[in-house]
Nucleic acid binder design. Structure first.
Length: 595
RNA sequence: CAGAGUGUAGCGCAGCUGGUCGCGCGCCUGCCUUGGGAGCAGGAGGACGCGGGUUCGAAUCCCGCCACUCUGACCA
């Protein structure tokens, strides 16, 4: 084991990194475990635990062991390099924050239970920072007064705290996690958009360097109070977010906000007869009524009652569609909506749950644009055990027509004429926002223009879940035996496995490890007195991208064996002559870093 | 916050018709073995989550609390 200060040759930013280049397993702290921990809730969680990368000490609170920390540091250094390249400046704000700043913007209350609060000995209110808009805005308002000082982009890599209702998935959703957050400050909206675009490019470079398959999607700006925003979603089956993407153009959006091509009206072949009421005893759900009346779900008008800004509102979507609460809230101009409870439904419609409908409803009604085109529709009669059939929008009920449903697989793309939408699952790895003057206006972060007039600074904010990325990468790259690290963030670049204790083998191992170290290659050398099977299993588990096997057998047949972790068949390992091994391996590492 | 469940050796679990706790893996020692988590022999390791109650006696039954997990709500 030797530690030294090195300048990594691949790092164009001339950053000096501290890296222990070579590590002998017998001297290391890599406690792998054979049996799966019972509480592992995702592939990445399982493998990070088994591989000895992390340990849990509380719900959503993890320790990083040496391998885990190396990966975390590598992700951080890629993020730093690209942020610096984009002209952002690193700062560090405290994790422990006095309550005053969040009180200033109202988020002390808005964050509610998600904020981890504490008191100091004098009884003063504090919290651990879940994000730092207020703090950075305060820093900037105290120091920046002139348009000459703008634009600026400041970022930090900090530990963040959120009292998640339910942490899960290991590092995917924690209460304490590492995040890179950047904040841009511009004189106007156009400047903010330019800053936003720079971050979009930087993020693309970051995720590309990590070799991830991801998609940039339109996103809900939510309570951040911004206008433009997009998410970087890493595509994995286990992802908790859903996104819709066009199969022929580059339209992609989080399902929360995804749109579909406007539906075309298909007039009924025959005129719809007048309304009539039918008895539907004890059948309330769409599936039940559909079976009872022998009518397909797409003829139904599903009527849901919501509480929006203190008012009861009816939202109507087609029976085969799902209502989208974010779209509904936006259509109503409120920040959020909540499903009405049974009591409120009874009071508003006069019927118990399952029999609500827009016909004759006294309150405000919003109908989805697809539901508005339903002919001879079927809906609740606002009377227990009765439905109404042959309902026509406009003729039989009045409602505001809006897009309030979630898109579904196969819907037409809203952007192009021929494409249709596919639904994917993803993990949000990054999010970029134009915030506007939401925070600067509230906190009076202003600058003077060249005429001496005062304006609020126009802001943007940009987050990357650094610790989440460690887990996300494993979610995307794993097989039945373990992790498959991309070279750029692997804990070590090369894993040397010594088979047997022959003097010739031990000598060859030591010599190769020393040569690799000299060439700046990060190498983990399994020098343990263990059976080969144990070493191979551990090597597959921790997933270092290149494995070098040195044994008597290989040496006899001409050299050492080189095998990428992605190659499952050991017999396909490449035989490299001993005297050229270090050179070939170092070159391979270099090649894998750039692809 | 609502519903469900689990806390017993480092990890995974059994024991729960009350009688002071076992198994597998891991760990230690020795022998043997060495190209995909070997084998044999011996060994160490436990206030059975915490507190109270019932009982001659509680891991086991009862009450309270705590922690954790799952499903939902929530998630810049």
């Amino acid at each position: 084991m030797r530690c030294q200060w090195v300048r990594s040759p691949r790092d164009k930013c001339a950053r000096v990194c501290y890296l222990a280049l070579a590590m002998r397993w017998s001297q290391a702290f890599i406690p792998t475990i054979k049996e799966a921990p019972a509480d592992a809730t995702s592939v990445s969680h399982l493998l990070l635990m088994r591989g000895g990368f992390i340990r849990r000490i509380g719900a959503g609170i993890y320790e990083y062991l040496p391998l885990g920390l190396r990966v975390l540091h590598k992700v951080q250094s890629i993020v730093r390099a690209e942020m610096d390249r984009a002209g952002a400046l690193e700062v560090l704000m405290p994790a422990l924050l006095p309550a005053d700043y969040f009180r200033e913007t109202g988020r002390w209350d808005v964050f509610g239970d998600n904020l981890l609060r504490l008191k100091d000995r004098k009884g003063g209110d504090y919290h651990l920072g879940p994000t730092h808009e207020e703090i950075i805005t305060d820093m900037v308002r105290r120091e920046i007064r002139s348009y000459r000082d703008l634009p600026r982009n400041l970022y930090q890599i900090q530990t963040k705290y959120r009292d998640e209702p339910r942490p899960r998935g290991g590092l995917l959703r924690c209460r304490e996690f590492t995040m890179k957050d950047a904040y841009s400050f511009d004189v106007d909206e156009a400047g903010a958009l330019a800053s936003y675009e720079k971050m979009r490019v930087a993020y693309t470079r970051i995720f590309d360097r990590m070799g991830l398959a991801y998609r940039l999607v339109q996103a809900d700006s939510g309570s951040m109070g911004g206008s433009t925003s997009a998410e970087f979603q890493v595509l994995v089956q286990s992802g908790e977010d859903f996104l819709a993407a066009c199969d022929s153009c580059d339209y992609a959006a989080n399902l929360e906000v995804a749109e579909s091509r406007a539906p075309a009206d298909q007039p009924a072949a025959t005129a719809t007869p007048p309304l009539s009421k039918v008895a539907t005893p004890n059948v309330g759900t769409i599936a039940e009524v559909s079976a009872f009346l022998k009518a397909p779900p797409d003829r139904f008008l599903k009527s849901l009652l919501y509480l929006a800004g203190g008012e009861i509102v009816m939202a109507v979507v087609r029976g085969d569609h799902e209502l989208n609460e974010i779209k509904l809230a936006r259509a109503l101009g409120v920040s959020e909506v909540a499903l009405a409870n049974e009591e409120q439904i009874l009071k508003a419609t006069g019927a118990r749950t399952g029999f609500a409908g827009p016909v004759g409803f006294k309150g405000k009604v919003v109908v989805d644009r697809a539901a508005a085109l339903v002919h001879a529709g079927i809906t609740g009669a606002n009377e227990g055990d009765f439905h109404i059939i042959d309902v026509e929008h406009t003729r039989d009920y009045q409602a505001e027509v809006r897009d309030i449903r979630s898109v579904a697989e196969g819907d037409g793309c809203p952007r192009c004429a021929k494409g249709s939408l596919k639904v994917y699952r993803g993990i949000e790895a990054g999010h970029i926002f134009v915030l506007g003057t939401h925070y600067s206006a509230k906190m009076k972060a202003c600058y003077l223009d060249d005429k001496g007039a005062e304006h609020p600074i126009v802001m943007g904010c940009y987050g990357i879940g650094v610790s989440r990325l460690v887990a996300t990468t494993i979610e995307q790259f794993n097989d039945t035996d373990g992790m498959l690290w991309p070279m750029s963030i692997a804990p070590y670049q090369v894993h040397v496995v010594g088979v047997g204790q022959d003097a010739a083998v031990v000598d060859a191992c030591n010599k190769l490890v020393a040569e690799l170290e000299q060439r700046g290659v990060e190498v983990l050398f399994d020098d343990r007195v263990e059976r080969p099977g144990v070493k191979f299993k551990d090597a597959d588990l921790i997933g270092i991208p290149l494995r070098v096997t040195i044994g008597a057998k290989g040496l006899a047949s001409g050299g050492i064996e080189l095998k990428p972790r992605t190659e499952r068949d050991s017999k396909k390992a490449e035989i490299v002559p001993v005297d050229r091994a270090a050179e070939v391996i170092a070159e391979r590492v270099r090649a894998m870093l750039t692809t």
